[in-house]
């Protein structure tokens, strides 16, 4: 199956290891992956901050870049949600874009991707994956099938971590208070790794955990699913 990867600007720039993991994982599952280099940003930050007019050309650009593909996969629930749920309200018809776990479970029809990840992991479901896209328990099904992985439930998992894009800046104190509660829940699990399907939320929670020197790492779902015994996940420096 031919698929295009929409890496998202954040992952492309700050978390290349996640995008590489998506490529490795999809290729392992028999996909032919393309990465159109004309892609940039889906326009979500502009749209969500009230700069709707700036988000429209970015939405059109996204559509032009990806319209020749049957499937686009993005390692981000919120960017996929922007494309699928918001583009139509901007008068831009969306290219079929899937968040990674949806693509694996719904399109490829797999829950066991042959991964191996010998760590204690807890999962934060991220708001847009959960409520905008409705991915449900697909990420947990995928994680449950990972060999050697010890999955522990995150208390109050469905509560927002407080990122919210420019919310984290505009309402920094409130965002921080939400983050503090999320971090307490993460630490309560005793997990070594916090995973999620969105690097934006992970940047937020991970940034807080790093400040606390909490010793819990944040790892995108794609990197866990790409990890195998032969080619295990390694922390990027």
């Amino acid at each position: 199956m031919k698929v295009a990867l929409f890496a998202t600007c954040l992952t492309d720039t700050f978390y290349p290891s996640t995008a590489k993991a998506v490529v490795r994982l999809l290729e392992r599952l028999g996909c032919e992956v393309s990465f159109p280099l004309e892609q940039t940003c889906c326009g979500q930050m502009h749209f969500n901050t009230g700069y709707r007019s700036h988000s429209v050309p970015l939405a059109r650009q996204y559509t032009e870049v990806f319209e020749s593909f049957d499937h686009v996969v993005a390692p981000s629930g919120s960017c996929a949600g922007m494309v699928r749920e918001v583009y139509p309200t901007l008068g831009v018809s969306p290219v079929p874009t899937h968040e990674l776990s949806e693509f694996l479970v719904d399109v490829l029809g797999v829950t066991d991707v042959g991964a191996w990840f010998p760590h204690r992991v807890t999962y934060h479901p991220t708001c847009h994956s959960l409520r905008m896209l409705g991915v449900g328990d697909k990420p947990l099904k995928l994680l449950s099938a990972v060999r050697a992985l010890d999955l522990v439930e995150l208390p109050a998992a469905e509560t927002c971590c407080g990122f919210g894009g420019t919310f984290a800046i505009k309402n920094a104190e409130t965002s921080t208070a939400m983050l503090a509660d999320k971090m307490r829940c993460v630490l309560d699990t005793g997990a070594e790794v916090l995973s999620a399907g969105d690097n934006s939320c992970l940047m937020h929670i991970g940034g807080g955990l790093s400040r606390l020197k909490a010793g819990v790492r944040t790892v995108h779902l794609a990197e866990i699913l790409a990890s195998t015994e032969e080619d295990p996940w390694r922390a990027t420096p």
Partner: peptide, 26 residues
């Protein structure tokens, strides 16, 4: 500073994903 008052920022990596792609797959 509104961000870094309570959270660290990851240092951008030396190589973006697209640079890696161009070198390895382009």
């Amino acid at each position: 500073s509104k961000w870094t008052s309570s959270r660290d920022v990851p240092a951008p990596p030396a190589e973006s994903f697209r640079e890696w792609w161009r070198k390895n797959r382009g």
